[in-house]
Design a binder for these strands. Structure first.
Lengths: 346, 346
DNA sequence: TTGTACGCGTTATCAA
DNA sequence: TTGATAACGCGTACAA
């Protein structure tokens, strides 16, 4: 293993100088800079993780983790709890994590939570960039203060964005199409449903991916409600009821965003022939029984635990150790059926 | 964070003494031992990972990694390459990994590879415990020398076994049954096939799991070749040919152990109606096209990269940092279909 | 512009 | 039975 010491010795300079060169800090003679750089390259220097970690404690890194309140979207429960675990783990490296729970209120604002965030105190931010004015404004402010940000679950644009950690929703829609193709007869009839969130990018991308894949590889499948009556309101399932009653021979339904999964039970109720197969996304502990009972035949996961932990790890690696992350960390599109859902990390 | 220093101060002893207590080393007065132990408990001491890692380099840990030669089983390619990567990563912590490739020869021995392993040189071993006399004998020897072992891909018994990292084959078989149920009509006909390895536990457990799950949850499905003609020899597909020709209306086939996947293409050829849906296990890079072409409709993965990396990590954690591992680390039973196979880590 | 020295937390060795 | 001290590799504050 190559250490800074060894480079210093070979170059005939001190450890301090080598350190300056390696971290591109100012104050080094151009000639020595070159020389040291070359030797480091030649020897194949790689900083020792343990050393870096130990030294990085002094930085007292503070990061904020802004996530959706789990009362709205059950999915975020496991994201949140994974993040808390990770935060505890990072404590030993001198990292403190401030948690903020945000939630879209009736008036489409998110209240005053973000106003309590002291940007001058934070070295980095991990957040779900909800598409709301106050959130966008917050990102702008963080941008101006040059605070590195990692977005998760939802992507957004920003100068200071380090990475996006989350689902590739377009591909997720394609996988859903593949599952629909798998569980439907060749000339089957398919329906789509989703809770009210037409403007959400996750819905949109999944929807497009689903349609594209279905049209391309399963052209004989008929979508009975393409472009119509796809969206249902919370607690109002009249639109999906209409679709099912008007199409008695539906084989499968892709429930894009299931909300609290009530829609799935509703469909099972309405399905007098008991043959409709439901494909959906994610699953939370309380809803696993829907798979057990065969109401949902397959669901596509998006690694909530990864969305909880990786953003914090990325921020620590970047701020603490100077490791530059990838721009995208897509979660795996894991398929769960009755037999492997119990093994899923929730 | 609680450090050894803080404990030492509070107990009125030196760091060295605290270290002795925490690591249960001899040479400490029973009274001080108790006292220090209590204070550590009270303060909730957790060793700092960075500090441990840095210090553990002095141990110059040497471990052996014994894996199947990839020429026999393509699956082990990615296991092996993941292990090599991990070994490089562990280098910085003073760990060196010796690799040994074993392969069952014509005479059912594995040649002299294991004889070249110097057990006195190794602090730990990660291996696939093939069910062969010479391998069992090797494990016995390692056992006598008290060398901690981690088994992967295949489990075995041994006093010095730390963990098993690999597939839960019984559950794997159950998931296969679930997939068969998903892609077959309710009263469909199902066949089973597997390359010659009836005595292998992985085949046996998957087979039992498959039958149990099918009988329990899909009683209307008929297995056309239950207990007969399941096994085919390498390059001799006459038995499966016979099954398909005698049962013109087979809906799906579970290929338990696909060997080099040639069997799948053979089935597709024999399937004049082009409707048989194949479910199998794993997939290797070169065979992804079988999914693209729709010959295999779904496959169940077993995280080869985890089987490559985790055993080494476990050994380092245990030997270097004193972290006691779990007894079982089952790999996830990931389902791949055409649309998400390209995202699979291979 | 460069070198020195200390601290991070743990482990190991040597001296008392 | 204990304490003191050096070492691991890195980062940085301070001195030269």
């Amino acid at each position: 293993m190559v250490t800074i010491r060894m480079i210093a010795q070979k170059a005939g300079v001190s450890r301090g100088t080598v350190d300056r060169v390696l971290n591109n800090r100012a104050g080094v003679n151009a000639e020595t800079f070159q020389k040291v750089k070359e030797i480091a390259e030649e020897l194949g220097y790689e900083p020792n993780l343990a050393g870096q970690m130990l030294a990085s404690r002094k930085k007292k890194i503070k990061v904020g983790y802004i996530v959706c309140d789990t009362t709205v979207d059950l999915f975020f429960k496991s994201v949140y709890s994974s993040a808390i675990k990770k935060a505890e783990e990072l404590e030993q490296f001198g990292v403190t994590v401030q948690f903020y729970l945000i939630r879209e209120l009736e008036d489409h604002s998110i209240g005053k939570v973000l106003e309590t965030v002291d940007l001058d105190e934070l070295d980095g931010i991990a957040m779900v960039p909800l598409k709301l004015p106050s959130v966008m404004e917050f990102i702008k402010k963080a941008d101006e203060k040059q605070i590195p940000m990692v977005f998760f679950n939802l992507d957004a644009e920003s100068k200071q964005k380090l990475s996006y950690v989350g689902c590739d929703y377009y591909e997720s829609g394609r996988v859903a199409a593949g599952l629909i193709g798998l569980v439907s007869p060749e000339n089957g009839k398919v329906a789509i449903a989703s809770i009210f969130d037409e403007e959400s990018p996750s819905f949109h991308d999944r929807y497009i991916g689903f349609l594209n894949e279905l049209d391309k590889n399963y052209p004989k499948l008929e979508i009975v409600n393409r472009n119509t009556q796809i969206i249902f309101q919370k607690n109002d399932y009249s639109s999906i009821q209409k679709v099912i009653q008007e199409n008695r021979d539906i084989d499968s339904i892709y429930v894009v965003n299931p909300g609290n999964y009530e829609i799935c039970e509703k469909i099972a109720e309405l399905d007098t022939g008991k043959k409709i197969r439901i494909i959906t996304n994610d699953i939370v502990k309380e809803q696993k029984r829907l798979m057990d009972e065969g109401i949902i035949v397959a669901t596509i996961g998006q690694q909530p635990e990864k969305q909880g932990t990786l953003p914090l790890q990325i921020l620590y690696d970047y701020i603490g150790l100077g490791i530059v992350p990838q721009a995208y960390y897509y979660t795996e599109l894991t398929i769960y059926i009755k037999q492997n859902i119990s093994l899923a990390p929730v």
